[in-house]
Nucleic acid binder design. Structure first.
Length: 1191
RNA sequence: GGGCGCGUAGCUCAGUUGGUUAGAGCGCAGCCCUGAUAAGGCUGAGGUCCCAAGUUCGAGUCUUGGCGCGCCCA
C-alpha cells in the first residue's frame, strides 16, 4: 500500500519535510560515503560574502552549483562540496563604519584599529544564518560545517605562503599607481567597486588658455586652448598634448575689444565657435607634430616659479624643459574638447603613463617630477594656490575658475553632464584619481601562459574564452595587489627600517622563529583580556603589525611589517589551495612535487576529506566544475587563473627589475601541476535583473525575497524555472509569473501522473514488492532487472504497444538527458524531460485509463499497465532528482520505500540492516541511486515514429472536429486519413482502434483515392539538391510547381525518378531528392500537418445521435456520482425518466453501456423511491435522474 | 571611447553544421473532455526574426555597417 496522496498538493510544505528528512538521515553525507574510492568530480565553491542579504540572483548560482554535483554523484562520482565564505575587504569595513557612525580612515584610527578589526570579524557572519537557510532551502548540498573562510588563520597563512613564493621569485614589486581614490575614506577602490558608483553629474567644463612662449622664452599673443572638466587639476598641469598627424588651426578672434590668437584642432573649430558664440578667422593651419616641444605658461604658478626654467638633456642631445611643453601622444580624441589635452600626471592614469615616458626620455640634467599639491585626504596642501589650501579639491573648482577669469585665462565655461564615479558605499563622495605607492604582481609577464591555460578551459557559453575573458587576458596589466586598509590578509612583508630591504614570511611560526622577535605579547595581552577572541585574529592587524625582529641587513635595525593588506580577490583566487591551508607541502603520491617537510595540519581543517592539506589539495585540483555570474570574469575567474598560473605553472625564471625590491631568495617549492588552469569547466551565468529590467535593488523593490518565493511556489519551482526556461548564461529578468508557471507546466503534471498511479494502485492493491526476489546489482535502485523478478511482471516485449512505446520513450529520454548533462547543458536536458513527462501524462496515462479501470484486478493487461507506469515513475524520480530534488524524493519515498512494504522512511532504513529482510531495501533516498542512463535494447525508434504519427492524427482529428463544431461525445461514422508517406500505413491500420477511440469514430479508412480530398505538391529537397544543382535549383522548383502532383508521383512510382528537362539538360530526381507535400482541397473539414491529412465524415445517422445522447447521459450521471460524494468503487442504482421519445429510445438502446460506464447495477426508466431527482436538459429534452448508492 | 553580449509573437524565452511553412509557455479568444477533476486537452488570432547592404541556388542563422539595450572597462 502506498501512502495516499492528499487532495491538493502543497509543494513548499512537502519540501520542508524532505529537507528535514535529508538532515536527519544524513543523506548528503551518505551520498559521499557511498562513493568512497570512486573517481572525483571536483567542485569549487566561489565564496560569497555573508555580510549582505541573499537575493534571487544568488538562488540561481546556488541552484546551478547544486545541479551538476548532484548529477555527477548519481553518475558514480565522489563530489566533495566544501562551502566557503569571502570575509575580507572594504564592504565589511564600510558596514562597520556605518554601525559606528564614522567615515574616514582617520576616524577609524581614532576609534582604534583593534576594536575595529574585531567588529569586522563579527560582522562577516551577520547574514550567515540567512545564507545558510537559503542554501538549505533551495536544496544546495554543500558542507557548511567545514566551510573555509578567508580570514581563518590557515587560509591567511596559505595565502602568505603563495605570496612569499611570488616575492622570492621577484614577482611582487612596489610601484606607483594612479588609483580611483576615495579621499574621505582614505582608500583606493578596485575597478569593480568604481564601476558600481558611476553616476551622471554636471561638472564645470572650462576652456583655458595656455599662452605659448617663443624660442627666447617671451610670451607670444598665441595660446593653446585646452579643455578640462576638473579645474582643480590645473595647478598640477605639467604638459599639453596634441596628436601628431592631426591638423590644428591658428585662429584669431576678438574678445572684449582685444584680439587674441588660439590654437585648436581644425575638426573642432566649428563646434567651439558654436558653443562660445564667437567668430573665428583661421589664420593658418599646422600639424600637431609642428607644435612638439613648444613651451607655454601654465595656468598656475605654484610650481612654475620652482621648475619653470629647469631643463634636461634628451637622447638627441637637446636641452628641453622638464615641464609645460607640448607633447605628442596618441590618446588625444576629437569628440569633445579642443584637441589639446591638459596633462596632470598625478590625477590620470594616461597622464601618469605620459610622465613615466617623459622621465625615460631624459638622459641627464633634471628630469620631470610628479607634481601633486593635494594631500591623500583630498585637500590642497601648501603647494596649491593660496585660496585653495586645506580645502577639498572639488570645492575649489569655482574659485579656480573665478581666478582664471580674473587673470584673463578663461576662454569659456559651461556645465558638462557626464558619468563620474562616486564611492559606491558613501554615495555623496566623488572619487578622484590619485597617485599611491602600491604593490604589484607581475602578471603581465605571464600573459602567454595565462592564455594557454585559458585555452584549456571549457567555457559555457563558449564565447567567454576568446571574448570577454580572453580579451581581458590579452590586455593584462600587473595586478595591483595592495590596499591601504585594515580588514584583509596582511601583506606578509617585513622591511628593514634602516636599509629598506625586505623579506616575505610564509607563516606565523616562521615569523616567531626569527631572531630577536618581539611584539607577540600584544596579541597575548588582547587574548588574556578577552579569551573569546578568535585565534584567527592573531594574523591580522593590528596584532601582526606589532611583531618585529632583528634585521639581517643592518645591525641594530628592526624589521617591521609594511602597512598594507591585500586585495580580497587574491584571497578568493587562492581558494583552490588555501581552502585546505596548503603551504607547498609535498604529497607523497604527487609526482614532481618538491618542497620542505610536511607541516602539521593547520587549524580550521575540520573533518575535511583527507588527512593532510597537501593530500586534499592534490586530490582536489583542478576543479572539474565551477560556476558564477559573468561579473566574476575579472574577479574570481581571473584571480584563480592568474594565481594558479604564476604558482603552479612552469618556472619563468622571472627576475625583478624594480630597483627597490629586496634581494632574491631561493624560490620556495612550487607544484608543477599538469593542469595549471584551476578549473576545467565553467558555466558563466547571466545576470538576473529585476522585474522592470533594472538591476535588482532593495530600494526599487523590483524583486521578491527568496524566502517568499520558496513559501509561495517552492524551491523546485524556482529551480525548474532556472534550469528549464533558458540556457544559464542568458540574462533573465526576474519573472514571478514564469516561476509560478513552472508548477503546472512541469511539477504538477508529473505530480498528477504520480498521484493517479497511487490512487489506482491502492484501489487495486498493486504491490510491486510482492513476489520480487531480486539479488545483486540494481536491487537497491529498483532497476528493471530487479523488478522483472516479480511474478506478475511480464517482459516488456510481451506487453502492449503503448507500454513498449512509453518505456522506449523513457529510455530514449534517459540517454538524451545523460548526453546533455555530460555536456553541461541543463536546458537541453530539461527540454527532453519535459517532453517525456508530457508524453507520459497526456498520452500514456490518457490512453491507459481503461486498463486501470478494468474490473478484473488480475488481468495481465492491467498488471502490465501498473508495472509500466511504476517503472516509468520510479525512473523519472531518479531522472529528475538533480533538477527538482524535493519532489523526486517525495515520489521515491512513496513509490520505492513505502510501496515496497517497508512501511515508511524510517522503517526502510531499518530494513536495510535487517538480515531478515526478504531482499535488500531500496535506497534510503533517491539521491543515493545511480542515475538512469537508458537501456538501448528497450528503445524502439520505429515505434516512436509511429506513435508520434498516431498522436498527430488524433490531434488533427480533434482539430477537424473543432472546425466542424462536432463535439467528441458525438460519435461519427468514419475518419479518413491520407498520408504523404505511406511507410507506416500498414502499422496504422493495425492500430486503428486507438485513433477510433480518441476521435470517437466507428471506422478508420485510409483513402484509396486521395485525390478526392487532397492535392499533392512536389518540392525539391533543398538540402540535397542545393549543392548538386546550384543556380538551377530555383528553376527546378518552379518547374515542379507547374506539374501536377499526381503525375509526378506516378513518375516516381513507375520509373523510380522524375525526369526534368530544363535548358536542354535532363535531370533525374530520385525519391529522396524531392519532398511530397499534401494539402487538402478546399471545402473539406480536414486538417493537415506534417504530411498527414485527416478528413472526417460529418454525416450523422439516428444510431449515432442516440449514442451521442447516451454519452451525454453517462456524463450527467458521473457528475451526480461526484456531487453525492460516491467513492470510486461504489455501485449505484439509476433511474432515468423522460417524456422525449428519442431520448428514451437512446437510453434503452444503450442501457448496458450506461450501466457499465457509471458502475450502475441497474438502469431503469422510472423514479427510485425516496430519491430526489436531478433535473437536466439534453437537446431540449427534460430528463430526471435518480441515483442511489447500493449498500 | 573600447571590448563582449543581446535584439525573434502582447509578455518571458527557444531556434541544433544556412535548406524555403520560425517554435514553446503565459496572456487573449473560442471550444472540448470529465472519477488525475480546485486538474487536463484542442484550436485560433498574433511575426517586416531591429534596420540596411553583402555572400549564397537559398539567410532568423554567415559578413559588414547602422540603431537600440545590457554588462565590463576607460
Amino acid at each position: 500500500m502506498f501512502n495516499p496522496i492528499e487532495g491538493s498538493v502543497n509543494f513548499p510544505q512537502q519540501e520542508l519535510a524532505v529537507s528535514q528528512f535529508w538532515k536527519e538521515h544524513h543523506i548528503y553525507e551518505t551520498s559521499l560515503e557511498q562513493r568512497k574510492g570512486a573517481p572525483s568530480f571536483v567542485f569549487y565553491e566561489g565564496p560569497p560574502t555573508a555580510n549582505g542579504m541573499p537575493h534571487p540572483g544568488h538562488c540561481l548560482t546556488r541552484a546551478i552549483k547544486d545541479l551538476f554535483p548532484r548529477y555527477r554523484t548519481m553518475r558514480g562520482y565522489r563530489c566533495e562540496r566544501k562551502a566557503g565564505w569571502d570575509t575580507h575587504g572594504l564592504p565589511v569595513e564600510v558596514e562597520v563604519c556605518k554601525e559606528l557612525g564614522i567615515h574616514s580612515k582617520e576616524e577609524i584610527e581614532a576609534h582604534g584599529i583593534e576594536d575595529f578589526i574585531q567588529k569586522c570579524q563579527q560582522s562577516v557572519w551577520r547574514y550567515m544564518r540567512e545564507w545558510e537557510r537559503l542554501t538549505e532551502r533551495i536544496g544546495f548540498w554543500v558542507d557548511l560545517k567545514n566551510a573555509y573562510a578567508t580570514y581563518h588563520r590557515s587560509f591567511v597563512e596559505s595565502v602568505w605562503w603563495s605570496l612569499k613564493n611570488l616575492f622570492d621569485r621577484g614577482l611582487l614589486y612596489q610601484g606607483h599607481k594612479i588609483v580611483w581614490w576615495w579621499a574621505q575614506g582614505g582608500t583606493a577602490l578596485s575597478s569593480g567597486e568604481v564601476g558600481l558608483g558611476y553616476r551622471e553629474v554636471a561638472d564645470p567644463s572650462v576652456y583655458v588658455k595656455f599662452p605659448l612662449l617663443d624660442d627666447a622664452g617671451n610670451v607670444t599673443d598665441t595660446s593653446l586652448l585646452v579643455w578640462t572638466t576638473t579645474p582643480w587639476t590645473l595647478p598640477s598641469n605639467q604638459f599639453a598634448a596634441v596628436r601628431p598627424d592631426l591638423e590644428y588651426s591658428v585662429l584669431s578672434t576678438e574678445h572684449e575689444g582685444k584680439s587674441e590668437k588660439l590654437i585648436v584642432a581644425t575638426a573642432l573649430v566649428d563646434t567651439i565657435a558654436a558653443k562660445t558664440k564667437r567668430a573665428f578667422v583661421v589664420e593658418s593651419t599646422l600639424h600637431g607634430r609642428d607644435l612638439w616641444g613648444r613651451r607655454y605658461i601654465p595656468p598656475f604658478h605654484c610650481y612654475y616659479k620652482l621648475f619653470g626654467s629647469k631643463t634636461g638633456k634628451i637622447s638627441d642631445g637637446r636641452d628641453v624643459s622638464t615641464a609645460w611643453r607640448v607633447l605628442i601622444t596618441g590618446f588625444v580624441t576629437f569628440d569633445t574638447g579642443t584637441g589639446i589635452v591638459h596633462i596632470a600626471p598625478a590625477y590620470g592614469e594616461d597622464d601618469y603613463a605620459e610622465l613615466l615616458d617623459q622621465q625615460r626620455v631624459f638622459e641627464s640634467g633634471e628630469i620631470p617630477r610628479l607634481l601633486n599639491p593635494v594631500a591623500p585626504n583630498g585637500k590642497f596642501t601648501d603647494e596649491g594656490p593660496e585660496y585653495c589650501r586645506g580645502r577639498w579639491v572639488k570645492d575649489c573648482d569655482r574659485d579656480i575658475i573665478r581666478d582664471l577669469k580674473q587673470r584673463g585665462l578663461l576662454f569659456h565655461q559651461e556645465q558638462y553632464v557626464h558619468e563620474y564615479p562616486f564611492c559606491w558605499r558613501a554615495e555623496q563622495d566623488p572619487l578622484i584619481q590619485y597617485p599611491r605607492r602600491s604593490w604589484f604582481i607581475r602578471t603581465s609577464q605571464f600573459k602567454d601562459e595565462m592564455l594557454a591555460n585559458n585555452a584549456q578551459i571549457n567555457w559555457l557559453p563558449e564565447h567567454v574564452k576568446t571574448g570577454r575573458f580572453g580579451k581581458f587576458l590579452e590586455t593584462n596589466v600587473d595586478w595591483a595587489l595592495s590596499r591601504e586598509r585594515y580588514w584583509g590578509t596582511p601583506l606578509p612583508i617585513w622591511k628593514c627600517e634602516e636599509t629598506g630591504k625586505m623579506e616575505a614570511i610564509a607563516s606565523y611560526d616562521e615569523l616567531m622563529a626569527k631572531p630577536g622577535v618581539a611584539g607577540g605579547e600584544v596579541w597575548e595581552a588582547a587574548k588574556k583580556k578577552n579569551p573569546e577572541l578568535p585565534d584567527d585574529l592573531q594574523v591580522h592587524k593590528p596584532y601582526i603589525d606589532a611583531v618585529t625582529y632583528d634585521s639581517p641587513y643592518a645591525k641594530g635595525a628592526r624589521m617591521r611589517r609594511v602597512p598594507e593588506v591585500i586585495d580580497c580577490w587574491y584571497d578568493s583566487g587562492a581558494m583552490p589551495f588555501a581552502q585546505w591551508g596548503y603551504r607547498g607541502e609535498p604529497e607523497a603520491s604527487a609526482p614532481g612535487a618538491l618542497g620542505k617537510s610536511p607541516l602539521p595540519n593547520p587549524p580550521h581543517q575540520g573533518e575535511g576529506i583527507g588527512s593532510t592539506a597537501a593530500q586534499n589539495f592534490h586530490a582536489q585540483f583542478p576543479a572539474d566544475f565551477i560556476s558564477e555570474a559573468i561579473d566574476q570574469t575579472r574577479g574570481w575567474f581571473y584571480s584563480q587563473l592568474a594565481i594558479s598560473t604564476l604558482l603552479f605553472g612552469k618556472e619563468q625564471g622571472a627576475r625583478s627589475t624594480e630597483k627597490d625590491s629586496s634581494e632574491l631568495h631561493a624560490p620556495s617549492s612550487t607544484l608543477h601541476a599538469p593542469f595549471p588552469h584551476p578549473f576545467r569547466n565553467c558555466i558563466v551565468l547571466g545576470h538576473m535583473l529585476g522585474e522592470d529590467g533594472q538591476k535588482m535593488s532593495k530600494s526599487k523593490r523590483n524583486y521578491r525575497e527568496p524566502t517568499e518565493i520558496f513559501d509561495r511556489y517552492g524551491a523546485d519551482a524556482l529551480r525548474w524555472y532556472f534550469f528549464a526556461n533558458q540556457p544559464p548564461w542568458t540574462s533573465i529578468r526576474y519573472n514571478e509569473q514564469a516561476i509560478k508557471d513552472s508548477v503546472p507546466e512541469f511539477l504538477l503534471r508529473l505530480w498528477n501522473v504520480y498521484s493517479f498511479f497511487v490512487i489506482y494502485a491502492n484501489i487495486d492493491g498493486f504491490d510491486p514488492s510482492k513476489g520480487v526476489r531480486g539479488q545483486g546489482s540494481g536491487v537497491r535502485d529498483l532497476s528493471s532487472s530487479f523488478l522483472a523478478t516479480a511474478k506478475s511482471y511480464r517482459p516488456v516485449g510481451e506487453r502492449s504497444e503503448l507500454d513498449r512505446w512509453i518505456l522506449s520513450e523513457l529510455n530514449r529520454t534517459c540517454a538524451a538527458v545523460v548526453e546533455r548533462m555530460d555536456a553541461y547543458d541543463n536546458f537541453g536536458a530539461c527540454q527532453r524531460i519535459s517532453e517525456f513527462v508530457d508524453a507520459l501524462s497526456n498520452w500514456y496515462v490518457r490512453r491507459s485509463r481503461d486498463r486501470f479501470w478494468a474490473a478484473d484486478k488480475r488481468a495481465v493487461e492491467k498488471l502490465d499497465a501498473y508495472w509500466t507506469l511504476y517503472e516509468a515513475l520510479v525512473t523519472t524520480a531518479k531522472l529528475v532528482a538533480p533538477f527538482v530534488p524535493f519532489v523526486a524524493e517525495t515520489m521515491w519515498q512513496n513509490l520505492a520505500c513505502a510501496g515496497l512494504g517497508a512501511g515508511g522512511w524510517r522503517l526502510s532504513v531499518n530494513a536495510a540492516s535487517s538480515p531478515q529482510a526478504p531482499f535488500p531495501s531500496p535506497q534510503e533516498s533517491v539521491h543515493l541511486c545511480d542515475y538512469p542512463t537508458g537501456d538501448s535494447t528497450v528503445v524502439d525508434q520505429a515505434l516512436s515514429e509511429r506513435m508520434n504519427l498516431v498522436r498527430i492524427i488524433a490531434s488533427l482529428g480533434r482539430n477537424a472536429r473543432n472546425a466542424a463544431t462536432l463535439k467528441v461525445r458525438q460519435p461519427l461514422a468514419k475518419v479518413e486519413v491520407i498520408l504523404a508517406d505511406t511507410k507506416h500505413q500498414g502499422w496504422l491500420e493495425q492500430h486503428a482502434d486507438v485513433i477510433k477511440e480518441e476521435l470517437n469514430v466507428k471506422a478508420l479508412d485510409f483513402c484509396d483515392d486521395p485525390s478526392l480530398y487532397v492535392e499533392h505538391e512536389v518540392v525539391p529537397n533543398f538540402k540535397l539538391l542545393g549543392p548538386k544543382l546550384g543556380k538551377l535549383l530555383p528553376k527546378v522548383k518552379q518547374w515542379l510547381g507547374q506539374q501536377t502532383g499526381a503525375e509526378l508521383l506516378a513518375n516516381i512510382r513507375d520509373n523510380g525518378q522524375i525526369d526534368v528537362t530544363l535548358d536542354g539538360q535532363t535531370l533525374g530526381l530520385t525519391h529522396d531528392e524531392v519532398e511530397v507535400r499534401i494539402k487538402p482541397k478546399p471545402g473539406w473539414t480536414s486538417a493537415n500537418d506534417q504530411g498527414v491529412v485527416v478528413v472526417l465524415s460529418t454525416a450523422l445517422t439516428p444510431e449515432l445521435v442516440a449514442e451521442g445522447l447516451a454519452r451525454d447521459v453517462v456524463r450527467l450521471i458521473q457528475d451526480l456520482r461526484k456531487d453525492t460524494g460516491c467513492d470510486y468503487t461504489d455501485r449505484i442504482e439509476v433511474g432515468l425518466v423522460t417524456d422525449a421519445v428519442d431520448l428514451a429510445a437512446a437510453i434503452t438502446q444503450n442501457r448496458d453501456y450506461i450501466a457499465g460506464e457509471t458502475l450502475a447495477s441497474s438502469v431503469v426508466d422510472k423514479p427510485i423511491a425516496g430519491v430526489e431527482p436531478v433535473q437536466a436538459k439534453l437537446m431540449n429534452h427534460d430528463l430526471a435522474i435518480y441515483v442511489r448508492v447500493v449498500k
